[in-house]
């Protein structure tokens, strides 16, 4: 599913010391991996490498058996749209679009969007994620944070990605919402047998995952 080999990532302006230095790291299909580490330790960089938003200075990055480091930037953009669902801590949605439009926006970047699209329907997903129909046409900026994060899951799932990447998605939620967020997310991933890489500093969530790793164990620089 994911295979990193001899990956080094160096910040442009701090070329002396690599931020990430990963000899070997694998995630197999269907696995849900919890990666923890302090902020600034390179967690987001790791996720951006996996999604192809960043490219590494050296090494091999394979996702779904495809070498991201050998793709053109256009190919990586298309790969990300088709195969990767992304959920952040905040700013997951275009605030002036409503929930349905936000989901349709993600659909519009999938190649072959149209009749032969593999993407699901915004309405089905929103219903499955307990967003009542009266909320669908509101600009998402007017929704509660909990609702916004659920719309974000729907948005991330709509193209039926094989890999879900979550960057501190629960950090802006209170404890109750945090658990319901994960209780909603995990069965959906299982149903589609998606892999999940979930990054957080909050160890109390670790019991939801099939595997827990410290970033310092993955990357040799820490």
């Amino acid at each position: 599913m994911i295979e990193l080999k001899n990956v080094r990532f160096t910040h442009e302006n701090r070329s002396d010391k690599p931020l990430l230095n990963i000899e070997q790291w694998n995630v197999s299909a269907g696995e849900s991996v919890f990666v923890c580490g302090p902020s600034g330790s390179g967690k987001s960089t790791l996720l951006n490498l996996l999604s192809g938003l960043l490219t590494c200075s050296e090494g091999e990055v394979s996702v779904l058996g495809q070498r991201l480091d050998q793709m053109s930037s256009r190919q990586r953009d298309r790969f990300r749209a088709n195969n990767i669902g992304y959920v952040f801590q905040r700013f997951n949605l275009i605030p002036y679009l409503n929930a349905v439009e936000n989901i349709d926006l993600a659909k519009s970047f999938q190649s072959g969007s149209g009749h032969n699209s593999k993407s699901g329907s915004a309405r089905t997903l929103l219903t499955a994620l307990n967003i009542s129909e009266s909320e669908w046409s509101k600009p998402t900026a007017q929704m509660s944070v909990g609702q916004q994060q659920r719309v974000a899951i729907a948005r991330a799932l709509v193209n039926r990605p094989s890999l879900m990447i979550a960057d501190e998605p629960t950090s802006s939620l209170d404890e109750e919402n945090r658990d319901s967020f994960l209780d909603l997310l995990m069965p959906l991933l299982k149903a589609e047998s998606m892999s999940l890489v979930f990054v957080s500093h909050d160890m109390s969530l670790a019991h939801h995952f099939s595997r827990v790793e410290k970033l310092s164990d993955i990357s040799g620089t820490h």
């Binding site: 938003l53 930037s73 953009d77 990300r80 952040f88 905040r90 700013f91 275009i94 926006l105 970047f109």
Partner: peptide, 14 residues
Amino acid sequence: RHEINLLRVLGAPP
């Protein structure tokens, strides 16, 4: 900025 970043994540090319 956030909006633009989000579009990139969704797969929007530059």
